[in-house]
Lab assay of single mutants.
Amino acid sequence: MPVRRGHVAPQNTFLDTIIRKFEGQSRKFIIANARVENCAVIYCNDGFCELCGYSRAEVMQRPCTCDFLHGPRTQRRAAAQIAQALLGAEERKVEIAFYRKDGSCFLCLVDVVPVKNEDGAVIMFILNFEVVMEKDMVGSPAHDTNHRGPPTSWLAPGRAKTFRLKLPALLALTARESSVRSGGAGGAGAPGAVVVDVDLTPAAPSSESLALDEVTAMDNHVAGLGPAEERRALVGPGSPPRSAPGQLPSPRAHSLNPDASGSSCSLARTRSRESCASVRRASSADDIEAMRAGVLPPPPRHASTGAMHPLRSGLLNSTSDSDLVRYRTISKIPQITLNFVDLKGDPFLASPTSDREIIAPKIKERTHNVTEKVTQVLSLGADVLPEYKLQAPRIHRWTILHYSPFKAVWDWLILLLVIYTAVFTPYSAAFLLKETEEGPPATECGYACQPLAVVDLIVDIMFIVDILINFRTTYVNANEEVVSHPGRIAVHYFKGWFLIDMVAAIPFDLLI
């Protein structure tokens, strides 16, 4: 008679799926529990143990900040960024110097990925580790590398530091407007667009060049630039800015003055950032001319202004700041037409079709709590990747769950009947059967004279019903998954307890 339990259901295979997918890609990662103190490590794979030199037993239950890997060259700011990422709910990448158990130093890129439950609360953290440099290539500990984003994938490793954006290309926007319009339909740009040429040739750093990471940081200074100062900065030398009595002219307006920039070969870094931020506020060169004239017309309804409409929906549905990093990277690809469009465009503009998908598509409701890094690593669709929660398995109709209350009560009843059979069957065979043979035949009273025979008949009927119930009862397979398919249940029961239950259900007393 089957006594099969499996009270692990309803099970959740999400954690096993993450481990299996990460292991298949030869990654070095740990999984931490966000619900406990210090976000203790609950799993670390073999790749991480080989990377740091510690065994799994030495890593388990330690804080996922990996303070046991810190050393003299470990930056405090990087460690603080990892700790801050564990307090938030967004994906974050941090470069930090770690030390192995043998004392060797290596520069590592740590990717902190939160995993949320159905309520939107962070319950786990996945920390992925990628070695960037070994100890002989690690720089000085005073050099802070965590304020910069990861290198873009479309640049060669040897040319990542030679990417320079020439400031004269930004200063000569109005001069290039006529050349853009003359391109017409034969050019790649839309009317009114501004073409910015980027020099990728390796050259020595000069005062006129600005690194790509500095251009990325310009967006942080746009908020500090007032509207009046932006307007004066875009007017140009024809209309000098008016300053109040006793007030000095704005240095932001002076930063885009061609006369002032041409007199000296070098520009201050602050002026460069502010000038680029001011130019980015204009949607095209037409807006710059309109600002000089004193009238700013409404933005025209053409394809170039609607190019950012799908980007707005993608940004609203993005799951991490990696989408913004990807957008900034692609927006700086050289030799393309940049349409400086305000994100607050007309909502009635139709979304044009684009061959290049900048932001990841909208994630469906079932995966809105899973970050983009987890979705990318697992390579699963929205119909396959579940949320991290207890999910009731989908069972067929008329199927009994093996952990249901009805099955528990039924098993206790069958257990009592088995005990009765084990006690009274030998007793009936030894004593009652002998008395029946010696006594007179009682054929007239039937079952009324033999109450134990009636009980034995009921017990046999219950055993037959138990066999039928076992054909529709779920079970737990070797992978700790609840199986509810009727065919698989029948095959599993035939290979197991079916023969024993059938022999126990045969009414031998009635056959004798």
Rank of each mutant, 00 (worst) to 15 (best):
H368G: 05
T145S: 15
S318A: 08
S354F: 07
I82N: 04
R280K: 07
P72D: 06
E37Q: 07
E177D: 08
N12F: 07
C265M: 15
T270Q: 07
R269G: 12
C265R: 12
G262H: 15
P157T: 13
G246H: 15
T375P: 05
A253M: 15
K166N: 05
A188P: 07
T329K: 06
S26D: 15
G183E: 05
K135S: 14
R159Q: 09
G314N: 14
Y43A: 01
A303L: 12
R301C: 12
A260Y: 14
L349R: 12
R100I: 01
A307N: 07
S263R: 09
V131S: 12
N128Q: 15
D102Q: 05
K332E: 14
A78C: 12
A32Y: 01
K166Y: 01
H302M: 12
E37R: 07
K93I: 08
V113G: 07
I82E: 01
R301D: 11
E177Q: 12
P249Y: 06
R35S: 15
E130A: 09
L210T: 12
D355C: 15
A188N: 06
Q25H: 11
V295M: 08
Q376G: 08
D323Y: 05
S255E: 13
P205A: 15
S55G: 09
V36S: 15
C276K: 07
R176P: 15
R92N: 15
S250G: 10
E37S: 09
H254Q: 13
E274V: 11
D136R: 12
S320C: 13
L267Q: 06
S261N: 05
S354E: 09
N128F: 06
Q376N: 14
V113T: 08
I96W: 01
Q247I: 09
G189C: 10
A169C: 05
Q81K: 11
A32N: 01
Q335Y: 04
Q81P: 01
L378Y: 03
C265D: 15
S207E: 08
C39L: 14
K166C: 06
S55H: 07
I330Y: 14
D136E: 06
F29I: 01
F48V: 01
A89H: 07
P298L: 07
Y99F: 01
F29A: 01
T375R: 04
K101G: 01
L378V: 03
A89F: 14
T201W: 04
I288T: 12
I96Q: 06
I336N: 07
